[in-house]
């Protein structure tokens, strides 16, 4: 029994709907409907290891800036994105935070850290017109 999986390749605006056929041992048997080789590379990666960068926000204890933007410093499996959010929902940060600071180390044992992607309390302050 062969199993067919469908993927939309994002390699170019064509967006081919590529079919990947897998045999019952889980080996790749073939590709169909990809208009170029790029599609095979993309689909294999999406089949074996579909990863995404998670971007979100966490609550701060600052009244002027209630949220800090965060991201994973490397892509994580897309199947754990929702679970990761429950960890971020429990996370609170205190100023000062600098872009790149680790907020949650080794998120769900993925080896990826959640890091700050904005600063907390270092906004570009208005210096006024000093003409």
């Amino acid at each position: 029994m062969a199993l067919e999986n469908m993927f939309i390749c994002i390699g170019c605006p064509l967006g081919c709907e590529v079919t990947l056929t897998i045999n019952n041992k889980g080996d790749v048997v073939g590709f169909a409907n990809n208009k170029c080789k790029e599609g095979e590379k993309y689909v294999l990666e999406e089949y074996r290891n579909p990863v995404r960068t998670l971007t979100a926000t966490v609550l701060t204890q600052s009244s002027s800036q209630p949220l800090l933007a965060v991201r994973t410093n490397k892509p994580i499996l897309k199947t754990i994105l929702v679970q990761s959010m429950t960890i971020l929902a429990r996370t609170r940060v205190k100023a000062p935070v600098k872009m790149g600071d680790v907020i949650v180390p080794n998120l769900l044992d993925t080896g990826a850290d959640v890091v700050a992607s904005s600063n907390l309390s270092s906004w570009t302050k208005n210096e006024g017109v000093v003409f």
Binding site: A69, V70, S118, N126
Partner: peptide
């Protein structure tokens, strides 16, 4: 502040061409 709407675009996909890096909006703006 400087930066315009980049502050609220916390998703990634910025700078793939300009910096050859996958940045979030605030990172690109910074």
């Amino acid at each position: 502040e400087l930066g315009g709407l980049l502050h609220q675009c916390v998703h990634n996909g910025f700078g793939l061409l300009y910096f050859n890096q996958d940045l979030t909006g605030p990172e690109y703006g910074h």
